[in-house]
């Protein structure tokens, strides 16, 4: 029996990609929840919150906007990473007024966890966008 080679292509899902991406940005896992992948959405949210919790517990740095500080390329990347957290960033900075402690023993580790949380959400936004277009690459690759 000849096997049919799967190719990547768009299959309409009936869902709006911009809503999926926006939901994913605002709440990690939100895009996947919108698209109907409830289990994975909850898993992603739990992992994101775990990284956030550990990062804050270790007093890691969360890049924030301060007009007095010069904008270097690394700082811009840090800001984009923090903003990628969506509502979490707003809650941490405006509601909780979280600030890292540079002299804390776990500062570097905490910063690593916080940066990772932001980067994870960037991947979730891109994945939600792809899924909304019907491009489930893992499924098509037989994984």
């Amino acid at each position: 029996m000849a096997s049919r080679q799967k190719t990547v292509g768009d299959a309409p899902t009936g869902k709006k990609p911009w809503i999926a991406a926006l939901s994913a940005w605002l709440i990690p896992g939100g895009g996947h929840l919108y698209l109907g992948h409830r289990g994975r959405a909850l898993g992603f949210l739990a992992i994101f919150l775990a990284c956030l919790w550990i990062g804050c517990d270790l007093d890691g740095q969360l890049a924030t906007w301060a007009s007095s500080q010069p904008l270097s390329p690394l700082r811009v990347l840090g800001l984009l990473d923090s903003w990628a957290m969506g509502v979490s960033y707003f809650l941490l900075t405006k509601v909780v007024h979280y600030q890292g402690v540079a002299t804390a023993p776990g500062f570097e580790y905490g910063s690593t966890f916080l940066v990772t949380a932001g980067l994870m959400n960037v991947l979730l936004i891109l994945d939600a966008w792809d899924l909304a277009h019907g491009r489930d690459r893992a499924e098509l690759a037989g994984n």
Partner: peptide, 26 residues
Amino acid sequence: MSHFHLMVLYAFLVGLFFSLLWRRKR
């Protein structure tokens, strides 16, 4: 937590994340 424990925890969370993101079958 020691450095090693934090590294294990980090590896666990990242491994879990990518396994959920890039694979469908258990």
